[in-house]
């Protein structure tokens, strides 16, 4: 089983498909709230503006943004594959941002339909985290 799992993970790297951006699919946003509250907040929102100097610095040091992209990838794995590993990772990383709070998260997918942006909630978690 270990060898099969490793092969499943390794083969796409040794014989890559390279189909970058074949189509621009609906894009996930991860939103979180304190369990039971009505106040959904986006996890890792992007800033309104980023200077060119800041963008250049991020060429060498960009950990927060790379983690944000990983969260996006995890959200896609949860919705497309129902991955338990991805959900566990998502909850762990979101809990890190708001420790000692019981939280709920939802995955909102944004797409264009008829020229307008549409938001659709494709997953909402049960409460998780909280004081240990």
């Amino acid at each position: 089983m270990i060898v099969l799992r490793l092969l499943r993970l390794l083969l796409p790297a040794l014989i890559p498909s390279w189909r970058f951006f074949r189509a621009v699919a609906a894009s996930p946003r991860i939103e979180v709230r304190a369990a039971g509250s009505a106040d959904w907040r986006e996890v890792a929102p992007r800033p309104d503006h980023l200077s060119l100097a800041r963008m250049c610095r991020r060429m060498l040091w960009n950990p927060r943004w790379n983690e944000a992209l990983y969260l996006v990838s995890l959200a896609e794995r949860v919705v497309e594959q129902g991955s338990a590993h991805a959900m566990h990772e998502l909850q762990q990383r979101v809990s890190k941002l708001r420790p000692n709070e019981q939280l709920e998260l939802r995955l909102v997918f944004i797409d264009v339909q008829g020229g307008a942006l549409m938001r659709e909630v494709l997953y909402q978690s049960a409460p998780f985290g909280g004081p240990c």
């Binding site: 992007r46 800033p47 503006h49 991020r58 992209l69 944004i110 942006l117």
Partner: peptide
């Protein structure tokens, strides 16, 4: 669409 709604642009601007 990449700029309009994808998760990639580093700022809202």
């Amino acid at each position: 669409h990449v700029f309009l709604f994808s998760a990639y642009p580093v700022s809202e601007g």
